[in-house]
Design a protein around this nucleic acid. Structure first.
Lengths: 218, 218
DNA sequence: AAAATATTTTAGACTACTCTAAATTAAACC
DNA sequence: GGTTTAATTTAGAGTAGTCTAAAATATTTT
């Protein structure tokens, strides 16, 4: 049985190894779980002992198969709760993260089974991220951060890499949602901002920072 | 901000002082929270320090007003989650306790507000216990499913265990609403149907199935 | 390749909660 | 009312997680 804290570390390591292709560092984890590197070192030893991660001192960390399945179960719970909050309790999609962060640690397989059913077996959470299956299989529907797309390419917004509510509110304002079609019209070589067409209608200039955090697919 | 553990102690002290009229003892608490009396003494000092309880060494414990309101907020959350689990996720009423025990500690006033709304502002949990209001007011009457009432007893309809529209339409037809007064005139030992008097006027024969789904109080 | 810098780990200590064993106080008994 | 017994509290120690400061290892720079 994993503690609340252990679960958070596992989940974080999973996210860090998915995002950037760079390896997972102690400092990176410390940053993400809002603690100090020294505490992370301690925890990594503990997780390695439980064979949830492969860990060699001073080299990075990777999840074992067991660790990854555990992490994906937590992520599954997180995302299902997000769907619940948005679809059933009419939360805004930028209000759900913190509450889901707590709910994801509730330990009841039956609860999650029933919740999944109640929600109609959703495949994606309100941010467009795929919901892993019960046994830790995740649909890695290929998506590319918008800033990596070539001029002339188009696709549909399927996910976000950032959930800060300031970011979510910005997207709201410019009319970018999950499912909206985006076409790359131009890219500035000066500040790497990107000109896009939203929903085949409005045109928009967005910063590289914003483009980096929008995942496009199809 | 109270810890998970502090919340459990408060809730337990509340329950112990409600139930039996005997005073709340260290051993009693230890038993209820599944720990040792020595640990309870420590925690009592801590809760007294936070002025959530009145505590004199070797004499018993009572909740302060502040402590009682805190306890009732936890109980409110517990019972609302129980309603959710039974009414929305089709848990049996005897399966919900442990999960609700975890869910009650989720810290989000907005979540509880929305959940309450989503559930239709229920007054009683699936076991018939009253749900305290947001500001810690509790109606001390219990509710009982109609089929468990004795012949000659009467009370007021305070809740339904079923929301299928066919059921609601049936109730409509026979003039049963929340707030209507019901008296049990007779119970058939053959099919367990119940003869009732509605609003001190009309008499009616209802099936056990219907009786099970009507909660009566007072 | 050595020196400077950044990252990571260890050492030792702190908090919240828990425990056992011993000491203290209250209650029950004769 | 004094003694026995039960309940409660204190003392001292353990675990999970955290921290700061110092030591060890990697990485970058020159």
């Amino acid at each position: 049985m994993l503690s609340y804290t252990e679960e958070n570390y596992l989940k974080t390591i999973y996210h860090l190894s998915e995002n950037g292709s760079k390896d997972v560092t102690t400092n990176g984890i410390a940053d993400a779980v809002n603690t100090k590197p020294a505490s992370v070192s301690d925890m990594l030893k503990k997780l390695a002992q439980k064979s949830l991660i492969d860990y060699i001192k001073y080299q990075g960390v990777t999840l074992t198969d067991e660790g990854r399945v555990k992490a994906l179960k937590i992520i599954r719970k997180h995302r299902l709760w997000e769907v619940f909050l948005v679809n059933k309790l009419s939360f805004n999609w930028d209000e759900v993260h913190d509450v889901a962060e707590e709910l994801e640690h509730i330990k009841s397989p039956l609860l999650i089974k029933r919740l999944d059913e109640f929600l109609g077996f959703p495949q994606f959470d309100p941010h467009g991220d795929p919901i892993p299956t019960e046994d830790g299989i995740i649909n890695h529907k290929r998506s590319v951060p918008l800033h990596q797309m070539e001029i002339g390419m188009s696709g549909v917004v399927v996910g976000l890499n950032e959930t800060a509510s300031s970011f979510l509110q910005f997207l709201d304002k410019i009319g970018v949602y999950i499912g909206v079609k985006i076409k790359v019209l131009d890219k500035s070589s000066f500040d790497h901002s990107v000109e896009i067409e939203i929903d085949q209608t409005s045109k928009m200039m967005i910063s590289n920072e914003v483009a980096k955090n929008l995942n496009i697919s199809e």
